[in-house]
Structures are given as structure tokens and as C-alpha cells.
């Protein structure tokens, strides 16, 4: 275990005993298990990536010559684009595997796909899959780094990191904030990753949802559960909305759109219950008029589009950190 010769600026403010080994993960499969130091390290790097991304000349050659494969078993144009832009800004060659038309449709198993891709010697694999644990399964078989871009209802770590970066830039710090995560907690990987991250960083986390969308044992993850927006929102610094998938609306978990919007949609009156300077977040794409009112999504407290910008930066930071040893980043 080597100690960092060049601790990040944030770490300098901590007691020397706390000086951590540098970030040295091979994969980013989830937030669970990351230390606050790891998270802070990534967020600090991402801050620099924001600066880079705001320049006209955005290209860096840190990872030039390396190959990144985006393997998306679920359609997500915006997340895939974000990973693609991040990889390209770091100089990587990025390939998008079109799973919809590939051999996966012909019945190839995930493991065979992994072994096939591995033989192409990529340096980084970004994977999204509808089954929880799929990224971990791939990581066991791939020789390269794997980034989980969402696996079932398990984790979506870069989303939580970009949310954290957005919050930190808005509020200065995460520790001590009260954050409400609202909506379909049961099926949300975004919720799980955020709960792990916010808890690790010392925020108070609330979840607000109808009981059918709260999974059993959720409070044991270190959150307080509320079944009403009116009870859960007062005192919040951050309102984090989740997307409610349309197919879950038709009677299976909640009876209808309009009933859901009536009780759990975010409107101006409900935003007013939170702290005056509360920010409103959403991982997008939004269902306007289902979980969030249009005027709130576009309102002054909304940071939804800043989240998108932070997404690219955070993904650049993650790719850099998985590919280059921390000592070299600061060398």
C-alpha cells in the first residue's frame, strides 16, 4: 500500500492520520464501498474537467491511443453520448456497440459477449444492462476497466457522482445537507447510488414515495422514509426527483398518472415547503406533468441542465482515475 505523495487539495485540510491511499480502483461498479476520500478525489478531479470542458479547445491526450467500448443493452442516447464525449475529450477511440442489431439479439449470452469484446483488447468498457449485477459479472471476465452505466435496479454510480458534483458546486459541501429523493425508489438504481454516496458524505437522506414504490428494508440503508411530499419536503436543501417509468404507472404500482401527479408530483407549492434556497434535480429524461411540473423544471431553483454538464466532467474524471494511477495524475 503506497501512500499518496500528492494528496488532493481537499485532503490537505484533513488530519494527517486520515491521509488515504490514493484512489486505486480498477472498475467503477457501484458507489457502495467507496470511501469518502475516493468520492472526494473523483469530485475534485471532475471540477478540473469542468474547466477543461468549458474551453474552446477541449481535447486532452491523457488517454490517447486507448480504446473505449460503450455497450448499452438498454437504450439511453443521452448517457451513451455523455460517456462518448467524455472518452473523446480524453483522447480515446470510442466505439459504440449497437446491441439492438448485434448478435446479442441472436441469443448470445452476456458472458460470450464479454469474452468476444475482451478479445478486442479494449482499455475501458462502459456497460448498461437491464439486470442487476451484470456489470460485476462482466468485470470478472474482462481484462480491462469496467464502468457501470446502470445495471437493473442496482447502481448507477456516475449519476450519483454527477449529482454530488452538482450539489457540491451549488452548496459548497455535501456534509450536513438534507436531501430528499422522491419517486420510484424501488426500481431506481439512481436512488440506490445516491443513497450510498450521500450517506458516505454525511448528508441526511430522505426518501419520499408511495409505499408500493418503497422496497422492503429501505430504511436500513440509512434513510428516513416518507409517504407524503408534504411531510418529507420541509427542511430539505436538495429535492432530487426520479423518473417514473410509464409502464409502472398503469395500475401495477400506482393507479394512474393523474393520481401520482396529484400526490407525488413536484409543483411550486411543494417546492416552497423546502428551504428557500433548495435546489431541484432530476436525472432526466423528465416526464413533465407526471413527476415534475414544467415551470419547476425550468425554474430558477432547477439545476437539471447543470447536471447534464457535470455528467460529462464526472465521467472524464472517472475514466482518468481508472486508467491512470493517482500518483501520476498529480505528477
Amino acid at each position: 500500500m503506497t501512500r499518496s505523495k500528492h494528496p488532493s487539495p481537499k485532503q490537505e485540510t484533513q488530519a494527517p492520520a486520515f491521509q488515504k491511499k490514493p484512489f486505486q480502483l480498477k472498475h467503477l461498479l457501484g458507489i457502495e464501498g467507496l470511501s469518502p476520500q475516493d468520492i472526494t478525489f473523483l469530485l475534485d478531479r471532475a471540477d478540473e474537467m469542468v474547466a477543461i470542458s468549458r474551453q474552446t479547445e477541449k481535447k486532452r491526450h491523457l488517454l490517447s491511443g486507448r480504446t473505449q467500448i460503450n455497450l448499452f443493452f438498454e437504450n439511453s442516447t443521452r448517457t451513451q453520448s455523455s460517456f462518448e464525449i467524455a472518452g473523446k475529450r480524453l483522447g480515446m477511440d470510442v466505439v459504440n456497440m449497437d446491441v439492438q442489431t448485434s448478435s446479442v439479439k441472436k441469443g448470445e449470452t452476456l458472458m460470450d459477449t464479454a469474452l468476444t469484446l475482451n478479445a478486442m483488447q479494449p482499455d475501458l468498457l462502459v456497460v448498461r444492462h437491464h439486470a442487476a449485477g451484470a456489470a460485476e459479472l462482466l468485470a470478472q471476465k474482462m481484462g480491462c476497466s469496467v464502468i457501470n452505466a446502470g445495471d437493473g435496479a442496482h447502481e448507477h454510480p456516475t449519476q450519483a457522482l454527477l449529482d454530488a458534483l452538482t450539489i457540491r458546486r451549488q452548496k459548497g459541501q455535501i456534509e450536513g445537507l438534507t436531501v430528499a429523493v422522491c419517486g420510484d425508489i424501488a426500481h431506481s438504481r439512481v436512488a440506490r447510488s445516491n443513497i450510498h454516496l450521500l450517506n458516505a458524505m454525511g448528508a441526511q437522506v430522505r426518501v419520499i414515495a408511495p409505499s408500493t414504490l418503497l422496497p422492503s428494508g429501505i430504511e436500513d440503508l440509512g434513510v428516513t422514509a416518507y409517504r407524503s411530499m408534504e411531510k418529507g419536503l420541509p427542511g430539505c436543501d436538495v429535492i432530487m426527483m426520479l423518473r417514473l417509468q410509464v409502464e409502472r404507472m398503469a395500475g401495477a404500482f400506482v393507479p394512474s398518472f393523474r393520481e401520482y401527479y396529484r400526490f407525488f408530483g413536484l409543483n411550486a407549492a411543494r417546492v416552497a415547503l423546502a428551504n428557500d434556497d433548495a435546489i431541484v434535480m432530476h436525472p432526466a429524461p423528465m416526464n413533465r406533468g407526471v413527476e415534475i411540473a414544467s415551470d419547476i423544471a425550468d425554474g430558477v431553483q432547477s439545476v437539471i441542465f447543470e447536471q447534464v454538464e457535470m455528467g460529462v466532467a464526472v465521467r472524464m474524471a472517472v475514466m482518468e482515475s481508472l486508467q491512470i494511477p493517482a500518483e501520476e495524475i498529480f505528477a
Binding site: 445495471d151 447502481e155 428494508g217 436500513d220
Partner: peptide
Amino acid sequence: AGLNATRMGLT
């Protein structure tokens, strides 16, 4: 069903 399933995102 329980904490482990919830944590792992499994039904």
C-alpha cells in the same frame, strides 16, 4: 425479500 435484495436491486 429484505435489505440484501433492496441493496442489490433485485426483486
